[in-house]
Design a protein around this nucleic acid. Structure first.
Length: 252
DNA sequence: GCGACAG
DNA sequence: ATCTTGTCGC
């Protein structure tokens, strides 16, 4: 994907929004409900299945799940994941009965070319403390952290510290934690560790991944049962032009 | 042209 | 992200 007008507009949009990110300490002591966000989709199908989970601390019990299926309006473009995934994730979040104290996103926060990854985008849109916990470093470099859970090393992007490579489980690759919005990095790491529960990925996003996949399978089965009435997968119209309602806009 | 590249 | 078989280890 090249620098189409919509892509350039999105870059400018991210830079403008990044200036509004705050780095508050997370009130970890009173933290009770932590949400997780993830999506699933089938290979050539531009349909997104989102899941938002709410997990209770400190026992990591799953107390609420919302899933939602919507057509994607953007392709996946490295650095512009938000424009693809944020709309359906925000719509799903709006259906939550609980108001979580914080959100963990399957993706990056400040570890991003314009310092505005999906976790920043969602946190800012929701005005909620948000952190990114990704499975791959997205171009950032790091020294291998020690083997014990809690061991960590700085994540560097363009020579700048943007997050942590954090060991959450012995014998597993580290996860890549960066601040999204209204959170400090050490608190973000502490929260991820508090949610690890013996797994590599923190419970909120790990369970959201499971739920989003279940939603994709359920949707596929439902479509199969509908036969002729099933939605025909319209190919994603791309690129888009100015004035298109998919143009980067502050509401999503 | 080649390799990188969150999900 | 998804596609895919077997394989290694607790």
């Amino acid at each position: 994907m090249t620098a189409t007008p919509a892509v350039q507009a999105a870059w400018a949009d991210q830079t403008a929004r990044a200036a509004r990110i705050r780095h508050d300490p997370l009130p970890l002591a009173g933290l009770r409900y932590v949400a997780g966000a993830d999506t699933s989709s089938r290979r050539g199908l531009h349909i997104l299945h989102a899941a938002i989970t709410v997990v209770r601390l400190p026992d990591l019990a799953l107390v609420e799940v919302v899933t939602l299926t919507q057509p994607a309006t953007w392709p996946y473009i490295p650095g512009l994941l938000s424009y693809r995934e944020a709309p359906v994730l925000l719509a799903a979040f709006a259906q939550l009965k609980h108001r979580p104290d914080a959100l963990i996103v399957d993706g990056h926060g400040l570890c991003h070319p314009r310092r505005f990854g999906l976790a920043c985008h969602l946190g800012l849109a929701l005005d909620l403390p948000a952190i990114g916990c990704a499975k791959r470093p997205f171009g950032a470099t790091y020294a291998e952290p020690g083997p014990a859970p809690g061991d960590r090393a700085p994540l560097l992007l363009d020579e700048a510290p943007v997050g942590l490579a954090l060991r959450t489980r012995r014998g597993s690759a580290p996860v890549f934690v960066s601040v999204g919005h209204r959170a400090a990095l050490d608190d973000a790491a502490a929260l991820v560790l508090a949610c690890a529960g013996g797994y590599r990925l923190p419970a909120p996003t790990r369970l959201a991944h499971v739920e989003a996949n279940a939603q994709r399978r359920a949707w596929a089965a439902e479509q199969a049962a509908l036969g002729d009435a099933a939605v025909r997968p319209a190919p994603l119209a791309w690129p888009i032009e100015p004035g298109d309602d998919r143009w980067p806009n502050p509401t999503c």
